[in-house]
Design a protein around this nucleic acid. Sequence first.
DNA 1: GTCTTTTTGTTATTTTTTTCACAATATTTA
DNA 2: TAAATATTGTGAAAAAAATAACAAAAAGAC
Lengths: 212, 212
Amino acid sequence: MALNRKCIIRISRYKNALNRLKALGFVKVFSGNLADAAGVSSSQVRKDFSLFGITGNRRGGYKVDELIKRIRDILGKNELQKVIIVGAGNIGKALLHYKGFESGGIKVMAAFDIDPSKYSHELEIPVLPLEDLRGFVQDHEVKIGILAVTEVAAHHVSEIMISAGIKGILNFAPIQLRAADDVVINNINLEVELENLIYFVNAQAKTDGVFE
Amino acid sequence: MALNRKCIIRISRYKNALNRLKALGFVKVFSGNLADAAGVSSSQVRKDFSLFGITGNRRGGYKVDELIKRIRDILGKNELQKVIIVGAGNIGKALLHYKGFESGGIKVMAAFDIDPSKYSHELEIPVLPLEDLRGFVQDHEVKIGILAVTEVAAHHVSEIMISAGIKGILNFAPIQLRAADDVVINNINLEVELENLIYFVNAQAKTDGVFE
DNA sequence: GTCTTTTTGTTATTTTTTTCACAATATTTA
DNA sequence: TAAATATTGTGAAAAAAATAACAAAAAGAC
């Protein structure tokens, strides 16, 4: 199946839109509704669904419950996805307490740091020494890790994670990580995202000027 | 100039790579070096540069200092970009203390919240009442805001920001915000990013299975 | 029960993005 | 100084992604 990152991102967004629509009492939904909610075209929605073999009824749309179940299945949300956080600094701690993952499927198991002052067993989610990472990952069969350490540590720590058995890294360190083909890396660079925004705001301001 | 989001993201990454190369003592750089550092092809690098009229020397590559200056200029990093944070919860607080923005150009001016227990003038960056947002944004001519409030508050708060004069929003609330054409919105949904990673890790695992 | 309307599913078309390829031209070597 | 070599800059080609278009089918009207 030839699907790309953007397609899966959209599928996630459809799922979020569906949850909202369900909460509003929707039982059926049309591609146009999802398109509006996710900010794409209705043919895009249908194209994405067709890639996953998701079908509805001509004239009848899609049943919200079935669709949610189907998408949750695609995204692996019907089984528990165990996640660790590496680096208990600013970003790491914020993610440790982030409520957005609670809705289902994603379970943050523990955080790890080199700084002993960060260790804690009192919290609901423990902060453990980095040395314990390997054993923990192997014992609990964790495949997904969030990397939130400094730029200088990032590469080294990512190698520790991968050698321990982590297969997917969500990287917040401001460096473009890459790895072997069997490891998936998703880089989120906050400064880059802000720079992007700033660029388009400034570009917008210039364009506006022309018409003033 | 017909340039897209992805192109600007790459330009930011080239800048980061250049800073690292400069720190290593590089004076000249070739498109291939930047391609390796940013994880793209060398012709992609040259194409991107050509879009911005960035030129080097045939056979001589690009001068690191000049290139950095040029890209910083494109990204607006040669002038101060004032930013506010709205929502001083988990994510908001983390960004308030985030060191990654210090390297230049981006200055977080203040944070805002509705919860009086969050207010603070002691911090280097103050946390102020949401009611003060409009005045602050107008007094300081802030154009960029980071939105880090709950899902339910996000839409309402974004409207407050926009009506106060904010022209670009980096949205961390788990909802796809949209706005009028003169406001740029960059949505970062942490759960969606994780789901994406999980999908590809699971897909990878299945593919591996076939060859085992 | 037939007709009308609406919406899907998919194929074709268009647009966008990336890669390829190579002439033009600096730099280095001899 | 001339020849050899490496690298840019860009137009053409290929690949990927998005949009449009429409036949097929389901739902509802009458």
